[in-house]
């Protein structure tokens, strides 16, 4: 179970006006601005839930994911994931989560995918039996058999994303964070990834937290959406709650943002 209570986070960002003279001034006196990335965010996610975490760029999605994965400490508030405060015990917390950042890669670039997996086996100290079983299951579900011997750099984006997702699941995480997993994928790959996530959630009861800008991902995968804007939760409920009659999900969402002044 994931509980987040009254979590706030502020970043300090250095600022200056345009031009040479302000650049010179900034040499002596820097001006900073405080950006409230998250203010008083609370939610609870039960085991086995699939939640879409959505919001415009800069709304605080990444900050939340970073807090949940233990690599960012909030200024105030509490967070408990399966009884662990993520940032206080990063190493043992990370054993129980899987993370996929669509824009980054966790595979080692120059070696065959299977070598990356073998390394992950050691990193997560997965016993050989579990590793074999998971690898077999994931290879089957994500259709990886032809890809495992190929170096990651030679895979297409869709192939790589399937390999990335498998990499994040080898150690049987109870919670999976997916940060824009379908970004840049073609229709076939997108459908394959979605179908897999649904199946994973159904069979393994894995909790999935998905951030995306793709409303079709949300419609296909999640019942519950948490909508965040300017660091605050604007909606925690069902996507249908904001759907406007006769408009697509995308248009409804844009209208919703507009009505909240973001």
């Amino acid at each position: 179970m994931i509980t987040l209570e009254h979590v706030s986070k502020t970043y300090k960002v250095s600022k200056r006006n345009a031009g040479f003279s302000s650049a010179c001034k900034a040499l002596f006196r820097r001006e900073y601005e405080y950006i409230h990335a998250l203010s008083d965010v609370s939610f609870t996610i039960q085991d086995g839930e699939m939640v879409g975490y959505i919001g415009p760029n800069g709304a605080g999605k990444s900050s939340t994911i970073k807090i949940l994965s233990g690599i960012l400490i909030p200024d105030s508030g509490t967070c408990l994931i399966n009884g662990i405060v993520p940032w206080k015990n990063r190493i043992s917390h990370t054993r129980g989560i899987g993370v996929v950042f669509g824009q980054r890669t966790q595979l080692w670039w120059d070696v065959p995918v299977i070598d990356s997996y073998e390394l992950l086996k050691e990193i997560y100290q997965i016993n050989t039996h579990t590793y074999r079983r998971n690898l077999e299951r994931l290879t089957d579900m994500l259709d990886l058999s032809g890809l495992l011997k190929t170096p990651a750099r030679q895979l297409s984006l869709g192939q790589r994303m399937r390999c990335e997702i498998a990499a994040s699941l080898l150690h049987n995480p109870r919670i999976l964070f997916l940060d824009e997993p379908t970004i840049g994928l073609d229709a076939v790959s997108k459908l394959a990834v979605r179908e897999f996530i649904l199946q994973l959630n159904k069979e393994q009861n894995t909790t999935v937290i998905l951030t995306t800008h793709d409303m079709q991902d949300i419609e296909a995968l999640t019942n519950r959406v948490i909508l965040i804007g300017k660091g605050q939760i604007l909606l925690d409920g069902r996507l249908e709650d904001i759907l406007l009659h006769g408009s697509s999900a995308e248009e409804s969402l844009a209208e919703f943002y507009r009505s909240h002044g973001i």
């Binding site: 970073k66 994965s69 233990g70 690599i71 990063r90 190493i91 043992s92 990370t94 054993r95 989560i97 993370v99 950042f101 980054r104 890669t105 966790q106 990193i123 997560y124 100290q125």
Partner: peptide
């Protein structure tokens, strides 16, 4: 990208 490394038990 180092954030990714920190998401692992290492």
């Amino acid at each position: 990208n180092v954030a990714y490394e920190l998401c692992r038990p290492i």
